[in-house]
Design a protein around this nucleic acid. Structure first.
Length: 483
RNA sequence: GGGGCCGUAGUCUAGCUUGGUAGGAUGCCUGGCUCGGGCCCAGGUGAACCCGGGUUCAAAUCCCGGCGGCCCCA
């Protein structure tokens, strides 16, 4: 009865926006009541997941030769102005610090919207010889952008990400880095978190401002809109020239470095994790990033039974703890039914139910969150089964997500087909002329569908006629509505 | 950026049209309960109604401004 007002009250498929808002609030991810638009309080359950996501990326970055740094939050205006296209692109979104105490500051300080202009003036000081290259540094920080419409974890005025800034002696090495960044994203976002995505080369008008080329990962949200969750940019030598980042090569010749930057959007990856794996009961977390991986629910009716049951609970708690599994015995004074619902809302992947029956008959009831199924497992097989389940759950989530993703990528060979598919929330592959005006016209006529770019292995050529305007098509592109 | 809805205990909400002692549910605290799917029973607790100004004998209610949130569309 009262379930209606306590749990998630809408279905993910029927009203995704509302469902997402409710999950964010009710699963204890964020409290949006902090009274500045676009700035949210990150609650413990979210921070624990975010920390795990960070750990996965940082591990991967460090494995491939990056080191951690922390640059200042503020960037003086003169740095910020150095790369023309970059400043034009970001200026409308910058928060400025203009006063301190009673003084008006002589020069305004930008709150970093991204840190190229902070990093690269230092790179100019640090890099002098070919021996200093490559230089690969990253930071895990929040950045600030004055966005008009905000949504928790999807678009904020303050959000969390990682930014890696790399400098190389040659363009070839820089391009290899772009590949490495994509591989990093694949390993973490797809393999470990089970979020499928397309890596696309963005059209020229949708590049990162200040980059030669932008490559970005787009995943698909349940409402049919794509979400960019990570991007990597070939910066060429633009910033090197703007900031004077040069090195002496082996022949004693002064050269500009070639740069890349990489930004996995940790905030948005959490949003995708919530949106893609979650169901009508709430979150569904992969074992790897779950703050609590196994929750043990004791079930008893009186003090004597409690003693028996708790002894077994503690035994399994210690057993799992020793294996570094994040485990918790829920001793709260609530009914088991209440606890079941609570942990399902929070997405805990595995639950052990231990009551009189389990104690007397030497088994444990294991419930898996992703399929909402129970199984009885003999005591001495429980630990092994948990390890198996951790993998099975991830595989299942991956398969489910992949199926949804692939079913929603379609081709269209006519304007009509394209419009229809977009309306149905698909990612649509079409032949395309490559003109910005055509893309713009398409966007207006379809209520916002955008050309997201070409696949990485794509080669320019003759692809018949542009599905939208009928002119000769030089490209195959993916089109979708986006966040 | 455009349109709509909204702000009343921790949470959800009634009251606002027609100004006059703010009501319920849930939560929280006590106690009880075979407590295995958001139980159940009894008692208790909790709100100067988002902020600022105005009209009035009197404002949650009417007027103006601000802040914040949500939904739909771009």
């Amino acid at each position: 009865m009262s379930e209606k007002i306590i749990g998630i009250t809408v279905k993910k498929k029927e009203n995704f926006s509302e469902w997402f808002t409710q999950v964010v609030t009710k699963a204890g991810l964020a409290d949006q009541r902090y009274n500045v638009q676009g700035f949210i309080v990150h609650m413990p359950w979210a921070m624990r997941i975010i920390r795990e996501i960070y750990r996965l990326f940082e591990q991967e970055l460090e494995r491939t030769g990056h080191e951690p740094v922390l640059f200042p939050l503020v960037i003086p205006e003169e740095n910020f102005e150095k790369e023309k296209e970059h400043v034009e692109g970001f200026k409308p979104e910058v928060f400025w610090v203009t006063e301190a105490g009673d003084d008006k500051l002589e020069r305004r300080l930008a709150l970093r919207p991204t840190s190229e202009t902070a990093f690269y003036q230092m790179y100019a000081l640090w890099i002098t010889s070919w021996r200093d290259l490559p230089l690969k540094l990253y930071q895990s920080v929040s950045v600030y952008r004055y966005e008009k419409t905000t949504r928790p974890f999807i678009r904020g005025r303050e959000f969390l990400w990682i930014e890696a800034h790399d400098a190389f002696a040659t363009h070839r090495q820089a391009l290899r880095q772009v590949r490495e960044d994509m591989e990093n994203s694949r390993k973490v976002i797809w393999e470990q978190l089970g979020i499928p995505f397309l890596f696309l080369k963005r059209p020229p008008w949708d590049k990162f401002k200040g980059a030669e080329d932008t490559y970005a990962a787009d995943t698909l949200m349940p409402d049919g809109r794509v979400l960019q969750i990570s991007s990597t940019h070939d910066l060429g030598q633009r910033f090197a020239k703007a900031f004077g980042i040069t090195f002496m090569d082996k022949n004693g010749k002064e050269r500009y470095v070639w740069q890349t930057c990489y930004g996995p959007g940790v905030w948005r990856i959490l949003a995708a994790l919530v949106a893609i794996h979650g169901d009508d009961k709430g979150l569904v977390l992969p074992f790897r990033v779950a703050p609590v991986q196994v929750v043990i629910i004791p079930i008893y009716y009186d003090e004597e039974e409690k003693k028996l049951v708790m002894r077994k609970c503690r035994r399994f708690y210690l057993k799992l703890k020793r294996r570094n599994i994040r485990v918790l015995v829920d001793t709260r004074d609530k009914t088991p039914g209440w606890k079941f619902n609570d942990w399902e809302l929070k997405g805990v992947p595995i639950r052990l139910e231990i009551g009189r029956r389990e104690v007397e008959q030497g088994f444990v009831t294991i419930f898996r969150r992703d399929l909402k199924k129970r199984e009885k497992v003999p005591d001495d097989e429980v630990v092994d089964r948990i390890y198996e389940l951790a993998e099975e759950i991830l595989d299942n989530l991956k398969n489910r997500a992949k199926k949804f993703f692939e079913e929603n990528i379609v081709s269209a060979s006519s304007k009509k087909e394209l419009v229809k598919a977009i309306k149905e929330g698909k990612i649509v592959k079409i032949s395309f002329c490559g003109r910005e005006e055509c893309a713009e016209d398409m966007r207006e006529a379809t209520n916002g569908a955008k050309v997201r770019g070409t696949s990485l292995d794509f080669e320019e050529g003759d692809y018949g006629k542009c599905v939208w305007c009928g002119q000769p098509a030089r490209y195959l592109v993916y089109v979708a509505k986006a966040y």
